[in-house]
Simulated assay, not measured.
Amino acid sequence: MKEVMTFKAGKFVFCDQYDKPRIEKLLVEAKTLSDAIHDLPILPKWASKIDPELLYSSVAGTAAIEGNSLNAEEVRELDEGKIPDEGHTAKDRLEITNLIDAYKMIDQQTTKPSKTNALAVALFLNPNILAESHIRDLHRQITSGLPYEDNIPGTYRNGMVKIGDKAHGGIYTPPKIIEDIEMLMREFIDWINSDELLNEHVFVRAALAHYHFSLIHPFWDGNGRVARLIEAKLLQSAGIRYVPKMLSNYYYRNVDDYYSAFSDSIKAKKDVTPFIEFNLRGVIESLQQMQSRIALLIRGLVMRDYLHFLSSKKSISKRQNDLITLLLDDSSGKPFTLHDLQTALPYSILYRKVSEMTARRDLKNLLERKLLTVDADGRYSLNLRSFDS
């Protein structure tokens, strides 16, 4: 813990005190999940689909917390050069493109910079180190060209702001004069890069960076987005997969609890358990979601191999093989009925010239092979869990 006396705002506390048993239990679960996911094989074609999806959902989530109206699909369209449906302002669109570029900035930190840029080289060689210049660069990127009152991209504010509301635990007034802000940002960088903090698990260190940067609130606008980007940067630099781009969506889905976790930690003064606990629950939820998704992809790969085996043994017909392959290629997972096979695309391509009796026989064989399941309403689905037992 580090206490700093400011010029005008009184004592500011950089706190790393939390309920160890309570947090350690969550941390063990998060670390176990993270390690398990890190060891899972990811094919390039899977990564090429997952990575953009996570980027677009993360950008939409972190922007939505601040009131932006674009959803993840519209973010994708914007990144692909398409203009989303009418109803979004030019400001909303620019916020999104700025955020996409900011996340790409973080991704590019894994690329070795030019030797002429001594600071960039030093940060590349020490990826866990957070630099004040990088924070300014992130803010410059996300607020460039946007008409925020008083805000100058990359420049600290000199004046009062208030954050929060009574519905989420009350209003907090951060330090307001630039001398305090500049000093606290220097102290923040020294503290977050100290041996004490570097020895914390990165999940805890990233959460502490997120929380304390938000308390300083150094810019006129964009502080929340920068805080979440700092957190993502620290996690990604430590080799954590997927979570850096998933937490923003967790915060958006649980935005009331997000604000309350801040307020509860502020009220607790020298105890940041509420925010770290909330954060770790988001880490665990994100990792569980990704573990399930990757497991389904692996099951799909195993099923394709099993299909090849069944076909080679003539245990299933070519049409039955084609139906299961079609279902594996359809990421929607939408169930279908016997009637759909002969009347609805894409199934009717295979079954429009086939009798109902033949279609029933196909479904019966695929059910017996546990490649399909059927519910009480006669709706069939791909059984990706057929290899679990």
Rank of each mutant, 00 (worst) to 15 (best):
R299T: 11
Y250E: 04
D257V: 00
L247R: 11
R93I: 03
K45D: 01
N321G: 02
G282W: 01
E53I: 05
D107R: 14
I135D: 00
L43V: 13
D388E: 14
I42S: 03
N98E: 02
P21E: 11
F14A: 08
K162E: 13
K318R: 07
K49W: 12
L296C: 04
T111V: 14
K104S: 04
N383L: 06
P44N: 08
R360K: 14
Y259V: 01
I216V: 08
K314E: 14
V302Y: 15
A167Y: 09
R228W: 00
A63C: 13
T143G: 08
I65S: 05
D92L: 11
E80S: 04
G170K: 07
K334D: 10
L235Y: 10
L345D: 15
L197A: 05
R379L: 08
S48Y: 13
E196I: 06
F14E: 04
H308G: 06
M290D: 00
T32I: 10
K82L: 15
R22N: 09
R361Q: 02
S58I: 01
A63R: 05
V28I: 12
I23V: 14
Q288E: 08
E77A: 14
S57Q: 15
S260G: 07
K267G: 08
L280G: 02
R136Y: 10
Q108I: 04
M183T: 08
S381F: 01
A376V: 12
S381A: 09
A207N: 03
D322I: 10
D375N: 13
P335W: 10
Y211K: 06
E277T: 00
L350M: 04
H88K: 13
L33T: 03
K2P: 00
F309N: 15
L78F: 06
R360P: 00
N117M: 01
F213T: 03
V59D: 04
G67W: 13
I171N: 02
Y250Q: 01
K112C: 03
Y18P: 03
F14Y: 14
R241T: 02
I230F: 00
D180M: 03
P52N: 05
E77M: 13
I216N: 04
I189E: 02
G61F: 07
S317L: 12
L43K: 15
R319G: 01
G282N: 01
A376R: 15
K334S: 11
S260T: 13
A209L: 08
K318T: 00
K267Q: 05
Y347G: 03
R293P: 01
M290C: 07
